[in-house]
Design a protein around this nucleic acid. Structure first.
Lengths: 255, 255
DNA sequence: AAGTGGTCTAGACCACTAG
DNA sequence: TAGTGGTCTAGACCACTTC
């Protein structure tokens, strides 16, 4: 066996980071750059192993990390694919409003507002854009089993979503993230959410069909892509009379 | 090299589950049974490898899964330890109330109620005990920076926590889970939480120092141990005027 | 120096998918 | 049958901790 140091230098410049970490980084770059798009397969492990000049075990360790982050999915006998935010269980990964009794249902989305605007200081800071850069503001009303449950006010950096228009929001389901991915190549990987209880008022109360002063769950969500790049800011007001926000901390599966 | 099948039979009865899965299961059993207690080290990998009759790589894969679930922590050069729910970052893993502006602070806990009772149907079902089995009910008031923020009503199966008394709750911090672990050998691994917005009333409002009808965040939390065994049911009412519930979905670290 | 976990390799064989 | 990911092994060497 040739000395490892020599081989490492053929593919990677010297670095103190582990090899699998560098491979992981390269895969991320390939996905971000659109080299492999959502739903497409990345090259087979053996091929990656050869082109990167590392062992298959190292490739597997790099891929493992990306699978854990839901950036990739493995399918035995078929290949390893870039995660697609299609309708399906994955759509629920970032949608946590469930009926207090029954089972999960797909939400119906109705877009009631769409306009271009200048960013306010709060949004701009969250989205990491300049204070008065252009933004797109969308208001959606989400219904479950026919009844309105949540009013979502979405803010996007116009820079990232050129050419976005109201007609793109006719699709079924909560998969705006699928739209981001298929049309703009932006993969939402994780979100940060801040929840509070507030009192209903104004048009939000009207949309939800509740009285002013009714208790609502307020959710401020920031959606992030690779390298924690901010993608979307969303302010939701949820009527929790018949629904609730369900969350599981620690790995979801039992040990 | 001897055939793998022969070796496998020396340690494991025939099974279609992967070896690393069986090793993982055995480690879980050892921890649950108190063979290695919280904060203690499990045997070194090479020793496990020999006693289980599998390769070190297989041991590592089994341990990896337990580390991902926070049941174990690795410390290079020292060993692999059963996770201890001591004061520290781990205490925050299940505590998600943060100031809306400032940084995280340790909550001060004051126990204002402790009594033995019979389970109501709801609690009994969640804790998986018979409808009228004995339970322990505790009420804690959590304060951050001196101001009361949350009223927690905790229900425990008396069967699991024999001899528990009010005086055990004098400790600082949110680490009731440390008490469960050190005194009863029960490791809380994950929680399920259901959040709603409600209106303040009665003694809860008084404890929090808010008017009746103020919006509060209600959290119903079920804490689970190995094999999803229910440990604790907790009903919290949080004043989110100056604090909020912070949650991150998808792996917490950036890619 | 001894002992621990962390990284990496090379290769065998199994399980699943597709033509 | 060929190609993919999934499991498992055996062993080398590195990085860190402790004595």
């Amino acid at each position: 066996m040739p000395p490892r140091t020599a081989r490492r230098l053929t593919s990677f410049t010297s670095s103190d980071r582990p090899l699998y970490d560098q491979v992981r980084q390269r895969l991320i770059e390939g996905i971000s750059a659109g080299e492999w798009r959502a739903g497409e397969a990345i090259p087979p492990e053996i091929e990656l192993s050869q082109s990167f000049g590392v062992s298959i075990g190292t490739i597997r360790k790099a891929v493992d990390a990306l699978v854990a982050h839901r950036a990739l999915v493995r399918r035995q006998g078929k290949g390893t694919f870039v995660t697609a935010h299609d309708i399906g269980q994955l759509a629920f990964h970032f949608f946590h409003i469930v009926p207090r009794d029954g089972a999960k249902v797909y939400p119906e989305v109705r877009t009631v507002g769409f306009r271009r605007d200048r960013g306010d200081p709060m949004s701009a800071r969250a989205l990491q854009i300049a204070p008065h850069d252009k933004v797109i503001r969308i208001r959606n009303v989400l219904s479950l089993a026919g009844a309105p449950v949540s009013v979502d006010d979405i803010t996007l950096a116009a820079e990232l979503f050129r050419g976005l228009s109201e007609k793109h929001f006719v699709s079924r389901g909560n998969t705006i993230y699928h739209l981001y991915q298929s049309r703009y190549g932006i993969n939402v990987l994780r979100t940060e959410e801040r929840l509070r209880a507030v009192l209903a008022k104004g048009d939000v109360a009207q949309h939800l069909g509740v009285a002013e002063g009714a208790p609502l769950l307020e959710i401020r969500r920031l959606a992030l892509s690779f390298r924690d790049r901010p993608v979307e800011l969303r302010l939701s007001h949820v009527n929790t009379a018949r629904h609730e926000y369900y969350n599981t901390l620690g790995k979801g599966e039992a040990l």
